[in-house]
């Protein structure tokens, strides 16, 4: 009986470990080293004119490294450095913009956009230089009631 149990353990435990490792490995796969942004995340929302305000203290509001939703007008769409980027502007006249570095799986959504469109983009807020920087961005799709 104990021999049967030992054989069972010897066969079963390695297989279980393998399954657990494969599962963990698959779940840790991301597009890059940063956390992924998904549609389902509830986040703080801003208009470009709000988020580029110099008075807004990102650190104080715990916004850095968190996901935010920014609404603005598309000023530019480019693929500089082999990355899709959407640059958003606000309604106020200023040289400060929001630069959104898009996830690779957003190419289809980006193709349907035009300069001047008003859209919302969700991404990880990294901070501010001359412009506000968002990484790993997605364009949330409107929810449909079926």
């Amino acid at each position: 009986m104990s021999m049967l149990l030992n054989t069972y353990i010897q066969l079963f435990i390695p297989k279980l470990l393998l399954i657990v490792l494969v599962f963990l490995g698959l779940n840790s796969c991301t597009e890059n080293s940063d956390k992924m942004v998904t549609e389902s995340l509830d986040v703080k929302q801003f208009h470009v004119d709000q988020i580029i305000e110099k008075d807004l203290n990102f650190n104080e509001d715990n916004l850095i490294e968190n996901v935010v939703l920014v609404e603005g007008i598309i000023q530019d769409i480019n693929s500089l450095n082999n990355r899709s980027t959407i640059i958003l502007k606000g309604k106020k006249e200023t040289d400060r913009l929001v630069i959104c570095d898009m996830q690779k799986n957003q190419k289809l959504a980006i193709n349907s956009l035009n300069l001047g469109d008003e859209i919302s983009i969700k991404g990880i807020l990294k901070g501010t230089l001359n412009d506000v920087i968002l990484l790993n961005c997605i364009i949330p799709q409107p929810k449909t009631n079926e």
Binding site: N32, S33, D34, I64, K126, G127, L129, N130, I133, L135
Partner: peptide, 16 residues
Amino acid sequence: VDMLMNAFIFEKALMR
């Protein structure tokens, strides 16, 4: 030149 250090992208999350 001005750059955000947390905007570097790595191959692995642990490196970042």
